[in-house]
Design a protein around this nucleic acid. Structure first.
Length: 465
RNA sequence: GUCCCCAUCGUCUAGCUCGGUCCAGGACACCGGCCUUUCACGCCGGCGACAGGGGUUCAAAUCCCCUUGGGGACGCCA
């Protein structure tokens, strides 16, 4: 049994987006599941559109997601001599040829073919000319004129294409650089890639690539074409849909494991399970359970998945993350152990880390910075309520142990004495100590805040009205 | 236009390989209710789909064909 080798080959013409991340994930998962190898390869043969910044961004995104690679990153621009060698091989064997047709001429041919009701193609006019290299010339692959090219897709089964649908595609550009189809094949073959999982928008490329493998005498790898991710309008996901880069989700407060979890469920399933840890994903992943129809990206569900992972995540790790997201909102604190106490109160209430940071604010800022929205104090702190709160604050202050239990005990006792309902005082207290009408449970909040700050806030608010 | 792929609730999907256990299960969203000091969480319930038509069969979401619909590809982009 030979080792499974997969790869992810992004082209650095844009950020790593959701669709790319999912493809990377599937390949990574397969490699990890089989104890194989996962390669990262940067496909930067398009010199004009590729950039260093995007390469950096993609790598950063991969690292953030935790999709670790065992080899690479390789850069195609550093492998030009390898491609050159293979191209020469094909030419020498009469399997490829130089073509002197201009772009305009080719356009013309394509138009003609269209008019005849055929697929737009190059008509092969230089095919038998035996041309040598020269200014403005490209190299084309000599595709078979008849017969069919078949490959067995691991997901969709055998796919056969009539060779008349293919044309003599370019493998080497005017400027000498290799084109995509040649470069992938040479790379995958020489890197020993055994399994290729990619979007099914590549199905049409596959016959060409199979032909190339055969012409070069390489073994054809196994292909699995996974359905694509569509926008809500059922069109290919793009910036139109705010098809954000993966890194944007980081900014928005998503956990990498949640993004991965959501992505894996888009086009893959394991019975009725929705939430997976990384380990579970690796253990349970199999090509067989990939679905074969396109799916629509649903931000709402992503959010829910994220909230589930927030609930599960280690408090300390969350506290560290929370500190970063607070800093993004301009609130700097070094006190991780304090944040660690806040986290459990916020876990069930936060769908994203950004949300958690917002909800954590009042815990962290100074007492004097608590702002009371206009009129709320007047509205909630009526004379009657105020009198109660003054008295209650007094009792709080005489508490030795400032805990949920002690706090609740004094309060209940007070309510009983005065024969009033907690409802009468709850919101007013909340307003005083948080400045908000919504917050975690009052006693928990007070405990976390601590005696000093709680009393301070209570007194300050009471004074203001 | 030509070729290729796909087709279960609004969305993600289970079930389809080995037809009966499916008047189709789960999840998100949505709508009720419960819990409750607010907001959430959680729990309970509801809404909601086998694209259509033909076959095959005692029996089809499951197999076959056609239609329709959707998506993708047709580049000196990847």
């Amino acid at each position: 049994m030979s080792k499974v080798v997969t790869r992810f080959p992004p082209s650095p013409t844009g950020h790593l987006h959701i669709g790319g991340a999912r493809t990377a994930l599937f390949n990574w998962l397969l490699a990890r599941n089989k104890g194989g190898k996962f390669i990262l390869r940067i496909e930067d043969t398009d010199l004009d559109r590729s950039s260093k910044e995007m390469t950096k961004s993609i790598i950063e995104a991969m690292e953030w997601l935790g999709l670790t690679w065992d080899e690479g990153p390789y850069f195609q621009t550093k492998r030009f001599d390898i491609y050159q060698h293979h191209i020469k091989l094909l030419i020498n064997q009469g399997k490829a040829y130089y073509c002197k047709c201009t772009r305009e001429e080719v356009d013309e041919m394509r138009k003609k073919a269209m008019d005849k009701g055929e697929k737009p193609k190059y008509d092969g006019r230089c095919r038998e000319l035996g041309l040598g290299p020269g200014e403005g010339r490209v190299v084309r692959f000599k595709a078979p004129l008849r017969g069919e090219t078949v490959f067995n897709d691991l997901l969709k089964g055998p796919i056969a294409v009539d060779n008349r649908e293919l044309d003599d595609f370019i493998i080497k550009r005017e400027d000498g650089s290799p084109t995509y189809n040649l470069a992938v094949v040479v790379d995958d073959a020489t890197m020993g890639v055994t399994h290729i999982l990619r979007g099914d928008d590549h199905i049409n490329n596959t016959p060409k690539q199979v032909l190339l493998y055969e012409a070069l005498g390489y073994q054809v790898p196994k292909f699995a074409h996974v359905p694509m991710i569509l926008g809500p309008d059922k069109k290919k996901l793009s910036k139109r849909h705010g098809a954000k880069s993966v890194l944007e989700y980081k900014e928005l407060g998503y956990l990498p494991e949640a993004v991965l979890n959501y992505l894996v469920r888009l086009g893959w399933s394991y019975k009725d399970q929705e939430i997976f840890t990384l380990e579970e994903m690796i253990k349970k992943f199999s090509i067989k359970r990939l679905s074969n129809s396109a799916c629509v990206f649903d931000p709402e569900k992503l959010k829910w998945v994220n909230s589930q992972h927030i609930k599960k995540k280690d408090k300390r790790e969350l506290a560290i993350l929370l500190r970063k997201y607070l800093a993004n909102q301009g609130i700097v604190t070094q006190d991780i152990s304090y944040l660690e106490k806040i986290v459990p109160l916020l876990q069930p209430r936060s769908h994203t880390m950004v949300e958690m940071a917002e909800k954590a604010k009042f815990f962290v800022i100074e007492d004097e910075k608590i702002e009371y929205p206009k009129d709320t104090l007047e509205k909630f702190l009526t004379q009657e309520v105020k009198a109660h709160l003054v008295e209650l604050t007094n009792r709080f202050s005489s508490l030795e142990e400032f805990s949920i239990n002690s706090l609740e005990d004094v309060t209940r006792q007070y309510l009983e004495e005065k024969n009033i309902k907690f409802k009468l005082l709850a919101q007013p207290i909340r307003i005083c100590i948080t400045g908000q009408t919504a917050s975690p449970g009052l006693f928990e909040t007070m405990e976390v805040l601590g005696k000093d700050r709680t009393l301070n806030r209570l007194n300050r608010a009471l004074r203001l009205v």
